[in-house]
Design a protein around this nucleic acid. Sequence first.
DNA 1: GTGTGACTTTCAGTCCGTG
DNA 2: GCACGGACTGAAAGTCACA
Lengths: 67, 67
Amino acid sequence: MDVTQRLAHNLRRLRQRKGWSQEEFAFRADIHRTYVSDLERGARNPTITVVDRLAMALDVKLGELLD
Amino acid sequence: MDVTQRLAHNLRRLRQRKGWSQEEFAFRADIHRTYVSDLERGARNPTITVVDRLAMALDVKLGELLD
DNA sequence: GTGTGACTTTCAGTCCGTG
DNA sequence: GCACGGACTGAAAGTCACA
């Protein structure tokens, strides 16, 4: 499984654990709502700065999203 | 320290531990030599697919490069 | 063996909407 | 609340010559 798919599954799992909608998650990470949707479907290849913001919003390490 | 700087330092440290030049590392990761130079100086904001290739070449987890 | 500026092409990332 | 599309702008990908 490639890294964008691993990210996709980790994002969805961790977001749902927080009980957030994609929209609320997007707001907290300061990322556009539609982009979060794309990421959770594995349809995008984000930069590390974006993934860093996602990790901070979820309060996890980058490795937990990507490994 | 931001994520591109953390990546920069981790890359240089792990590459040197392997005893590789930037050129040899670049070849192994299938990335251009000057791009590796840019990354080790924190001058680029790469996508996760690029960092994934770097991690595989170094035989480490993504988290070891970014956390 | 490495750093750097300049460059073109590709795609990250945003914003509008629809079912 | 989410998937998905179209259109757009800025930035990343990828390469080169030269110091």
